[in-house]
């Protein structure tokens, strides 16, 4: 069997046509994981011990079972107790919740790196719990972990092919259907690999660049202010 360029060119648009669906599912699941991950982080730190313990258990359970099993559970098992989702919602929720457990660990590491003195200062300034989190702690905890968060976006993106198991027409599902119809798998599956590479690699570069720029940008504004102050002093 040799590579058939005509066949490859013919099927490429069909497979690549799933691109918006894949991006949509990735972003949807990522947003779920960002928000739900933060909720898990808070719940795990709750002073109400049963909640903290239950959250810990949930995180460990979700992290140590395969996402494919969780997907089947959500899509095939939950309807039997009256909870059913369409395949897209099921896919977004499953991937989102699975990755929320990783993101909650990322948040946790960022939060633990904030010095204790910041909590105490927030208390001395009489901030409420919410204000302490959103004005003092998270603005310091999140910037250092942005690269890790970006990484999980890419890992999540590469996990989307498991959704073919419940019939979501993403890249692999399309390629599989084309392959089965033509008895030719080399080209469609290779194209899937290429598409993932084409989307992942530039994203990784972009995340790197954003990370560097955000660091530099933060510093350069501060540096500019400092230079301005020195200039003012010289003038005065």
């Amino acid at each position: 069997m040799t590579w058939d360029w005509n066949f490859a060119i013919e099927v490429f648009p069909e497979i690549a046509g799933a691109i918006w669906l894949v991006i949509g599912i990735t972003l949807g699941a990522y947003i779920v994981s960002l928000v739900f991950g933060l909720a898990l982080t808070f719940a795990r730190r709750s002073s109400f011990k049963p909640l903290a313990l239950a959250t810990y258990g949930f995180i460990e359970f979700v992290r140590s079972t395969p996402p494919l099993v969780q997907l089947f559970f959500v899509f095939f098992a939950l309807p039997s107790i009256g909870i059913s989702f369409d395949k897209y919602t099921a896919g977004i929720l499953t991937l989102g919740i699975h990755y929320s457990t990783y993101l909650s660990e990322v948040y946790r590491s960022g939060i633990e790196a904030v010095p204790k003195g910041q909590w105490e200062a927030a208390k001395a300034m009489n901030f409420s719990k919410m204000q302490t989190w959103f004005k003092v702690i998270l603005p310091q905890a999140l910037p250092p972990v942005i690269p890790m968060m970006g990484n999980y976006l890419l890992v999540l993106f590469k996990e989307t092919p498991i959704l073919m198991a419940i019939g979501v027409g993403e890249f692999l599902q399309e390629a599989q259907l084309i392959g089965a119809a033509n008895f030719k798998y080399l080209e469609p599956i290779t194209i899937v690999g290429l598409l993932f590479l084409l989307l992942s690699y530039p994203s990784a570069l972009l995340i790197n660049k954003l990370e560097k720029r955000s660091k530099r940008g933060f510093r350069s504004t501060k540096k500019a202010v400092k230079e301005m102050n020195e200039f003012e002093e010289l003038k005065g």
Binding site: P115, Q118, E120, A121, A124, M125, N126, F127, Q140
Partner: peptide
């Protein structure tokens, strides 16, 4: 505090205005 515990992500002015505004 002994170690100041200023909020490093806020300007000096915001360090001082944040609590009067929000608290």
């Amino acid at each position: 505090f002994q170690h100041f515990n200023l909020f490093p992500h806020m300007s000096i002015l915001r360090n001082v205005t944040e609590a009067p505004i929000h608290v």
